[in-house]
């Protein structure tokens, strides 16, 4: 008698992964629990869909009638993004150098890294709130908040890029008797410049996105216009502003892709 147990067990080509399955079940259970905790229910979703339909109906067609307001807001957002990116880069360069562990001693890198962690951990909106309190409403508060965000992002990636460079070129420059600054400019900078341009253009995109939002807490830019339109229930103006924001960011992405190609 040949039963199934006598035969050698067939090896499955694709064995089931029980750990992953249990993990997915646990994740699904968590989602259900969290939704219950947050008071999410089908009923609320249904009511929300009705609201959503009315909301969308009021959004169309987009109303570009107040275009002067939209243009001035967008221009201010652009100004905030450009200025914040510039000063962010200027301040991130030295911070990044100081945080690179292959060029600097530990007692220098440690405080620099702490500063970077501090700049990165707060969302730009929270930083903007603090600056609005310190220097009042207006574009400057937005600029300062985005400078802090830029320092955190660029110097972290810049320090990592410097830590990955080849030290051979640095040694070659040093062997010619160059001073510390010359070593940086001739040995380190050419190796990291393409990546640095990459981070900077990426940060410009990111600052542009965030500059559309700092206005909600009083930091200037299109966000203030958007928030006012929202509070007045002028949802058609809100849609017009959103369309302009998306278009602006698409253009900015095309430009930064071009810049990255040029500096490759």
């Amino acid at each position: 008698m040949t039963s199934a147990t006598d035969q050698p067990r067939r090896r499955a080509a694709f064995p089931p992964n029980w750990r992953a399955r249990i993990g997915f079940v646990l994740l699904a259970l968590y989602v259900v629990y969290a939704c219950a905790h947050m008071g999410v229910s089908l009923e609320r979703l249904q009511v929300g869909m009705e609201h959503g339909q009315r909301f969308l109906a009021r959004m169309f067609p987009p109303n570009f009638g107040r275009w002067e307001l939209i243009v001035s807001g967008i221009v201010e957002s652009l100004q905030i993004a450009v200025i914040a990116t510039f000063f962010g880069i200027v301040l991130a360069l030295p911070t990044g150098f100081l945080a690179a562990r292959n060029l600097m001693p530990v007692w220098v890198t440690w405080p620099a890294r702490a500063l970077i962690a501090l700049c990165r951990s707060f969302h730009p909106i929270i930083v903007a709130i603090i600056f609005v309190k310190a220097i009042g409403f207006g574009a400057l508060a937005g600029v300062m908040a985005l400078i802090v965000a830029s320092i955190g992002f660029i110097s972290k990636l810049f320090a990592e890029a410097i830590e990955e460079i080849s030290l051979k070129q640095v040694e070659a420059v040093r062997a010619t008797g160059a001073g510390f600054l010359s070593v940086l400019i001739m040995g380190v900078l050419p190796q990291v410049l393409p990546r640095f341009i990459g981070f900077s253009t990426y940060q410009l995109d990111s600052n542009l996105r965030n500059s559309t939002m700092v206005g909600i807490v009083g930091g200037g830019g299109i966000g203030a216009t958007l928030f006012t339109a929202y509070q007045r229930f002028d949802f058609d103006v809100v849609l017009a502003i959103l369309i302009v924001i998306v278009a602006m960011i698409m253009v900015a992405e095309v430009i930064s892709t071009w810049a990255r190609k040029v500096f490759q």
């Binding site: 947050m38 609320r44 996105r209 939002m213 958007l226």
Partner: peptide, 23 residues
Amino acid sequence: TSRSVNSLIWALLFVAVFGPGPL
């Protein structure tokens, strides 16, 4: 579109749809 509209602006839109709250 999803990336260029900021999270705070997405939140404004969904507050209008679902009302204030974690949903």
